[in-house]
Design a protein around this nucleic acid. Sequence first.
DNA 1: TATGAATGAGCGTTCATTCAT
DNA 2: TATGAATGAACGCTCATTCAT
Lengths: 191, 191, 191, 191
Amino acid sequence: MARVVKEPAERRQEILDTALRLFYENGYEQTSIADIAHALHIAQGLCYRYFPSKEALFDAAIDQYAERQAARLQQGLHAPATPLRQLIAEMPTFLDTETPDDPAYQFCHGPESGKVHDRLSLLICHKVLPVVETRLRQAVADGELRPCDTEALASFCVYGQLGLLLDTQLPAAERVQRLRAFLQQQLQQLA
Amino acid sequence: MARVVKEPAERRQEILDTALRLFYENGYEQTSIADIAHALHIAQGLCYRYFPSKEALFDAAIDQYAERQAARLQQGLHAPATPLRQLIAEMPTFLDTETPDDPAYQFCHGPESGKVHDRLSLLICHKVLPVVETRLRQAVADGELRPCDTEALASFCVYGQLGLLLDTQLPAAERVQRLRAFLQQQLQQLA
Amino acid sequence: MARVVKEPAERRQEILDTALRLFYENGYEQTSIADIAHALHIAQGLCYRYFPSKEALFDAAIDQYAERQAARLQQGLHAPATPLRQLIAEMPTFLDTETPDDPAYQFCHGPESGKVHDRLSLLICHKVLPVVETRLRQAVADGELRPCDTEALASFCVYGQLGLLLDTQLPAAERVQRLRAFLQQQLQQLA
Amino acid sequence: MARVVKEPAERRQEILDTALRLFYENGYEQTSIADIAHALHIAQGLCYRYFPSKEALFDAAIDQYAERQAARLQQGLHAPATPLRQLIAEMPTFLDTETPDDPAYQFCHGPESGKVHDRLSLLICHKVLPVVETRLRQAVADGELRPCDTEALASFCVYGQLGLLLDTQLPAAERVQRLRAFLQQQLQQLA
DNA sequence: TATGAATGAGCGTTCATTCAT
DNA sequence: TATGAATGAACGCTCATTCAT
């Protein structure tokens, strides 16, 4: 086939993106390196110049995605002089988004392969947890929040969303709205 | 080899138990049907009389385990005339236990293969959620709790624990204690 | 399951009939002993009381069928004082039949699995060949036919039909009719 | 093992040739992909780069062989200005040959596994039939042959040989000779 | 005679990974 | 950097066959 040469960083990213998509849509086991290479129009061997194994590629792909979501949230939370109220209003967005262009959109609305979705959900929560806890601690320091077990509170704020978010029975919009309302109410009681 | 004939129900349960243990200890992919059969001293083919595929065996195994955990919790929650306070005090036990004999003990303290542990955690939460919500609704009806979005509250009570429970840095005992304290405090505010 | 006891001969025949049907419809490899036993509502092990192996069962099944077809033809050919003309008119019936009750009907009109159909066709021809040759030799003795290589003639009369009979493009009725017309014409030239 | 890289077309042909030989000698079921790969000194997996399944490999192998036999006959039949007499004299060669170097030699004289031989015989006849019919139609057009059901005639000329050819009792040379003599005599009557 | 749970060997197939080009 | 033919080990699964009941 026509040999196409690209910048290593670009190639690497291409592979990560396509791998994540396929793993997410079809599951880890049901996605072979051949599938990924085929979708990218590259040779199988090329994947191994960028990642030492399939497992490493998978880990890198979901890790990068989770990292991005955590970074997005961090930006929102650390905007200077943003009150906790704001935090509450924005919290659910780390898992969802209303703009279909956002890669997170796929996460909540696209086709999904249960197992990978589960893992990704937990990984994102895992990375988001310290971000939220830091903000909560700051809120306590600022007097916005009464002193409490901020780690536990962060755990409930972050992981507690999963029950509703993973409930595929409910319309996505409703899940988000109810989460916001609930969180807002709870946090006000802790002020 | 000496041929041992057993009641189908007994054989089936044997396979489920051993399969869950091996999947949990070594991971889904790292556990072959041959491993399971070998551990049971049975022929590989016998597994296929009881489960149509490895995937189906895995699903059945984790499903049964999660179901049992949910049933355990339900018993505790529906003891007649038990106040919500009690509920709070017992909640974390659906994922943990102090008695090493309990199968749940393994879950929190045994060796674990991350991916299966993740899936099992979410599955248990998934099955426990409606149980808790039902109890919360009853609490509202009894005047123990102010009216609120019980579904969201249940989601936070159940899934919210995962952040701390999955934090392998903390000693298991501490995780449970802090969760209880936190939940108790929260629910009292909602009374 | 309810234990049903039958006359050995009857059981054996049941097994042969069902085996032939399944082999014919699904192919030899695609038909397992379990399939046959299941269709008969008997235990797998029972097949092995009547036939030593799957291969033996298959051979017995197609052999019996072919034998029957040959016997049918022989009756027609050896009816006392039947002229060769009659023979010609009846010949194609060894592979086909117009009565749907006849087991041969299935052969030409039912669903079929190519490979078994091929084998069965050749086996029937193989068994029919000597029957036809004997009749041809008698025809020569009776002066109905000029002396010739009766074995070769029988080969062409019997196997020669396969080309048209196996042509699934043509309607079954047409195949038979054309074969009769052609054979009749040919044999008249040899008178 | 030392890795040997070949042109895909060459590899593919190697596999086809060896597969046909082993299938023919030992039968379809008795020949495993491992056997074929072993005989070729290649890895089993390589067979699956060229053929999607064992069945597909088998079909491709016998199909290619039958196609070649049909092509050989076609050349002989369509030599310009060759009279039908010639056709008759050459007909049997589509299934047999006197030169041991010819792959067809193996077919009639080599070791054989009944079932594969049967299938191959019928497949060759199937492919040869239209070739012969075309020639017969031309013969009618040329006035070499009286008008008749050329399709039926072709069927008898081609498939009719099988009875003698498959008669393993007779010496191969005798089968061929008698077939030629018989066909020649028959076709002359149709002139 | 009949059952059906159990065996165990084998097979087709897949696929992560390597390497000659 | 990139290709893709080739490897080879493993694995899921099937199934003819056996045997305790």
